[in-house]
Design a protein around this nucleic acid. Sequence first.
DNA 1: TATATTACTATGACAGTCAAGGTAATTTGG
DNA 2: CCAAATTACCTTGACTGTCATAGTAATATA
Lengths: 109, 109
Amino acid sequence: MVQRQLSSDLLRGHVDTMILKLLQSGDKYGYEISKLIYMSSNEQYEIKEATMYSSLKRLEKDGCILSYWGDATQGGRRKYYKITSIGEDTYTQNKNDWEQAKRILERLL
Amino acid sequence: MVQRQLSSDLLRGHVDTMILKLLQSGDKYGYEISKLIYMSSNEQYEIKEATMYSSLKRLEKDGCILSYWGDATQGGRRKYYKITSIGEDTYTQNKNDWEQAKRILERLL
DNA sequence: TATATTACTATGACAGTCAAGGTAATTTGG
DNA sequence: CCAAATTACCTTGACTGTCATAGTAATATA
């Protein structure tokens, strides 16, 4: 069965959490993150670049991640992101919120 | 255990579907809808009036519901909302979308 | 008669998402 | 070796759902 691409409004507010989750298994750069999300969702959700970068900006501003240019001697093209301890706490919190939201929606829909 | 009130951003986009679901069991007026949602969520989610009425406006504009004033001879204070067949189709569609979103989030979070 | 509650409405702000556009390095194919 | 495709990052402005705030008015209660 071929699934339609999902309206991303239903995933709204969860992008930050997805990224924090991915970064828990090691530092990653932007493009890599978007590819991983696409694959992990079974090709059903493709994060838009603008969405991803604004999420990364937000996470960095809030101290949840920090960034560094990789391989600077080569021209420094990839920017890597690393989760902080604040980011780990935020992830746990967000995950709990999602569990709660899920229970509520299972009642109400 | 006392749950925090949920950040309503996590339920964003689902308000219309909640209302359509409620209207499937009979016509209801606005205030009644908000109380039912509050109770059905185990007092964990309280829809804001402005949110509810803008959802009702949107649903009516899209042909998913229609409205009529009840008890006009009395002064007509309650406005009732009735689901249409378009609304029923929309509900089914939205519910499926939610199931799909849920599966994706269970993978990605 | 004053107050609380029920019920509906309008307006303006905010935040997350995305379309569209841009820059530039590296890899691939002819 | 050069053109085209791919990789990679970034910005801007618009859109939409939500909500704080404010308002109107009828009914019930004290």
